[in-house]
Design a protein around this nucleic acid. Sequence first.
DNA 1: CGAAACTCCTGAGCGC
DNA 2: TGCGCTCAGGAGTTTC
Length: 268
Amino acid sequence: MPELPEVETTKRGIKPHLLHQRITDLIVRNKSLRWPVPDELRMLIGYDVIDIERRAKYLRIKTEAGDALVHLGMSGSLKVVSIDEPPSFHDHVDLIFEHFILRYTDPRRFGCWLYLKPNEQHTLLSKLGPEPLSEAFSADYFYSQASQRKTKIKQFIMNNAIVVGVGNIYANEALFMSGIHPSREAKRISRARLYKLHQAIIDVLRKAIENGGTTLKDFVNSDGKPGYFKQQLNVYGRAGKACLNCNKMLKEIRQGGRSTVYCASCQR
DNA sequence: CGAAACTCCTGAGCGC
DNA sequence: TGCGCTCAGGAGTTTC
């Protein structure tokens, strides 16, 4: 399940390979992703990649003829493979270059490939909140947004209109790190504690990206697990086990259809 | 307007 | 060993 650090790592991994390389073909084996893969994507054929940007968990592969907007969904991945590498069952899209292929694999097909005109501001992107590692995501911004919302704090920090890129794993971790109960109403948390949560979100994402960077050299044809899986997870996936802080048993609840794990003793 | 429910899909884990 | 069942989960869309 790609979280923001994995998408950032993917961008850093593929960018040096794709930059200034010419797209020679596009093969779509299964266009049934989140939305149908549009034929307009073929407009990119014959053009060089001039940049790759990440916004939230979207990757934007840019050319003079337009861009590919790619989302990895739940189970998607991109990798650079050799030009004669035979595709597997879940390899739905190949963006083909002269000497290699950018191959998109996605068993659950929650991801997407869309076409955007040059500089097009798509509605998918325009409604997004600030990047968590940008200055726009300031402590004061975070407080002012939270102080007027009745939503439970976990759903608040996972809301892409508030801040992007905080997926379920890191939402659980950031709440544990800041000692805040996931079901607490956002507006009922003190300014000081919201500041602490704000910093925890930044810290946990930054650390994960740093760990992801250690796998970049193996990005091509890599089979190993990315580095951020080495990051110690305090609560996610540890329901029923002992809290690493106080040794009491971690609890699990469901919020908005998603699993929340927390320590009822350390998080209030 | 905000918030919750619903939706897409398949691999993994489980009980028998 | 294998079948069938349940479930997780990003995020856009629909409903209330």
